[in-house]
Nucleic acid binder design. Structure first.
Length: 110
DNA sequence: ATCTTGACAGACG
DNA sequence: TCGTCTGCCAAGA
């Protein structure tokens, strides 16, 4: 791996831009990168990166606000706890008021 | 070089 | 309204 991080690098960068207490969806990031149909690549990038500490992947959830990737955080509810600590209410791996805590990179950043 | 998988999303039945 | 399928792009085997 680590051949050409062109695409992934942007994914990591956007993830870092996610403010604390805020969550975003793979589709939003993908769209911001210009790959709205490649939301899977966003998660793919994380998986390849291996949960970089610089990349708060725990703030990234699917369009349902579900912490689908929590399995990659060690299989524990660490992802959920992290979000709750940041101010994001999570219930059973699902973000409450997702629309309220949703953070759109292409919209908030512009 | 080819096929399968992948933390998704949206469209179709 | 719910369930299923395809589409997208890239990387691993």
């Amino acid at each position: 791996m680590k051949a050409n991080e062109g695409f992934f690098e942007r994914v990591y960068e956007v993830c870092r831009l996610i403010p604390e207490g805020r969550v975003t969806s793979y589709g939003a990031i993908a769209k911001y990168l210009g790959a709205a149909r490649s939301a899977r690549m966003v998660g793919w990038a994380m998986n390849s990166s291996g949960n970089m500490d610089d990349v708060p992947a725990h703030r990234v959830v699917n369009r349902n606000g579900l912490l689908t990737g929590k399995s990659h955080f060690g299989g524990s509810d660490a992802m959920q706890q992290l979000l709750e600590e940041e101010g994001v209410p999570v219930k059973n791996l699902q973000v409450q008021d997702f629309n309220k805590y949703f953070w759109d990179p292409g919209k908030e950043l512009t």
